[in-house]
């Protein structure tokens, strides 16, 4: 669709090229350049300021020997597995319920989706209050007479990640439900008619016909949710500040602290490179499935 203009090749379509400068700069300088910069400097011994003094894999060795980093990784894996399974399972089940030609569908959707409009800071602070052992759920149950009732996830290092999970699910499942509902509505009405004619029960139709047909929706959702989980930061800062102790530390927090407060740049950059690596592990198979083989996805 290139326009026929006078002048040399470079000046053809000049206005469009000028207009695209911010995009080109963002793509090349920030996304590509910034990523390369981070990876390169993660191999240096930079402390307060970036210096090109290469130290090989020293930063990475130190990273994987740090107990705080190992805790962070353990936490994000635990949180990630549960968050992925629950958001997708709950999101799909809710979407199926919403797809039963119900009344007040808009009202239910509005209720389930409003947390998604709120920030993780607000989400974290509300749930910090609800899970407050003295005044929140635990306190209420105890005052009702069950004295030994214990439910204090935010103060118990063993289950603190589940306290975060309750808040994270509250914030995000509505969104996944909407994606799944869009997927369900995208399925041809004739499929349902055919299944009904063949006398296949509804649950079986969902499980054996609809779910496989919705594979692209599931994969897209999986990628979006997974890349969101790796970035998990604000929620933890607001709800637990990484505590009790270091029990709810996550990788993004480790990166932030080493880059901006501990003045150990090389270490922070090595940690962020590991985060990048984990995203690539999710992203590359997806890109391969989506765009590999066929020309245009």
């Amino acid at each position: 669709m290139a326009t026929k203009a006078r002048g040399g090749r470079l000046f053809r379509n000049m206005n469009a090229k000028i207009a695209a400068i911010p995009m080109v700069l963002t793509a090349l300088v920030v996304f590509v350049g910034g990523t390369i910069w981070t990876v390169v400097y993660s191999f240096t011994g930079s402390k307060l300021l970036p210096r090109l003094k290469f130290v090989g894999f020293d930063q990475y060795e130190r990273l994987w020997e740090s107990s705080r980093w190992l805790t962070s990784i353990g936490n994000i894996v635990l949180y990630g597995v549960f968050a992925l399974v629950f958001t997708i399972a709950m999101g799909f089940l809710l979407a199926v319920l919403m797809d039963q030609k119900i009344r007040f569908e808009d009202t239910f959707r509005t209720i389930m989706l409003y947390p998604f409009a709120l920030s993780f800071i607000v989400t974290g602070l509300v749930w910090q209050w609800i899970l407050n052992p003295e005044f929140g759920i635990q306190g209420i149950v105890r005052r009702m007479g069950w004295e030994s009732f214990t439910f204090d996830p935010l103060y118990n290092p063993d289950i603190v990640m589940f306290g975060l999970l309750i808040a994270g699910l509250w914030q995000g499942t509505g969104f996944v439900m909407c994606l799944m509902l869009a997927g369900l509505r995208g399925i041809d009405e004739d499929i349902w008619k055919a299944a009904r004619v063949d006398g296949i029960p509804t649950w079986k139709t969902y499980l054996l016909i609809v779910v496989p047909m919705m594979r692209p929706v599931f994969i897209t959702t999986l990628v979006i949710v997974a890349s969101g989980i790796i970035k998990l930061y604000d929620l933890v800062v607001a709800q637990t500040s990484g505590g009790p102790g270091t029990a709810s530390q996550v990788p993004a927090m480790y990166v932030y602290d080493y880059l901006f407060t501990a003045q150990n740049l090389g270490q922070g950059l090595a940690a962020s490179t590991m985060m990048l690596l984990s995203v690539l592990i999710v992203l590359i198979p997806w890109a391969y499935l989506e765009f590999g083989g066929k020309k245009h996805g």
Binding site: V30, F31, V32, T35, K231, V255, L276
Partner: peptide
């Protein structure tokens, strides 16, 4: 450039914070 942009949106912000 557009493809780079879309893939870039998946890069964790932490990677680009310091640059």
């Amino acid at each position: 450039f557009f493809t780079i942009l879309i893939f870039g949106s998946f890069i964790p912000y932490q990677v680009m914070l310091y640059p």
